[in-house]
Amino acid sequence: MPVNETLSQYSDWSFTTATAIYLLALVFFLIEQSFGVKGRRAAERSATRVRELVGAGGPSTASEPVEPPPAAPSREAGRAERIGRMGVALTVLGLLLHVCALVLRGLAVDRWPWGNMYEYIMAVTLIAVASWLFVLRKFPVRHLSGFMLLPVVILMFVNGTLLYTVAAPVQPALQSYWLVIHVSAAIIASGVFMVPGVASICYLFRSAHERDPRKFAKFAPKLPAADVLDRVAYRATVLAFPLFTFGVLCGAVWAESAWGRFWGWDPKETTAFVAWVVYAAYLHSRATAGWRGTRAALINIIGFAVMVFNLFFVNLVTTGFHSYAGLG
């Protein structure tokens, strides 16, 4: 299986360009966000919208207006709106290049392109951006995109510089169709988990502000209402958690045929277990009086922190069966 250097080169270029475009989109979103009036208006709009979504507003849903009566848009607000839309367009463009980068990498090495940490993070960030774009279609949270793109850009920058690994075939232990199943599930779950992670962090700011309007007075009013954030976090987690469970399950099945046992408390297995338990606790906390809201958001953030820890610390610092980072 020789490596196709040309394709690998194109993949690198696509990846770098995608990162740069996300960065540009990030700037656009920050500009949109910084238009104070606009930001507040967006927050108000989402508050109305969520009343409709929750259906708790009144007896009849059908008769309730979905959009607030359009206030005469100031010129500034119109410009902010345009900039925000351009940000989304740029994000879509970045995503296309991101997909190219991953596909080209796969073609270059003639295998599924998630055999080392560099490729893994490339795929996770791709899923994160894709799920964010999906969330944007369902929830009015566009002006949050900057917060979502920030970790994505940082991750991709670190990935392209510190973690870069030349295209190469993978070692025998990874040559299995389980690589596709297990790692894809882990990638998708991790990427989707990023959405509730970011939403929950925003939730903490926003709910602190709602309790005491003096707190984060400059910044929090521009965030969507706490219940929108809570809902985004919950919906994304409910999707990601079964996927993650599936990934862990497939990991165990694969470990049985690759390493001689289905579960052996290897550092990566242990940390996945911990993350799983934390997310299970998150789901339970939303059904427990006194734990909804802030505490649930905190638990979700802890869950995501454990996922990140699993990716970086366990890959780079500890040694175990999962030491496939390719950073020898």
């Binding site: 408390w265 242990t270 338990v277």
Partner: peptide, 24 residues
């Protein structure tokens, strides 16, 4: 109670962690 189950879940997560950090 659900609350206790929640605490136990946390304890379990916490207790499992040293296994990833210390050699076993």
């Amino acid at each position: 109670s659900m609350r206790t189950a929640l605490m136990l879940l946390f304890l379990l997560a916490l207790a499992a962690m040293p296994g990833a950090l210390l050699p076993q």
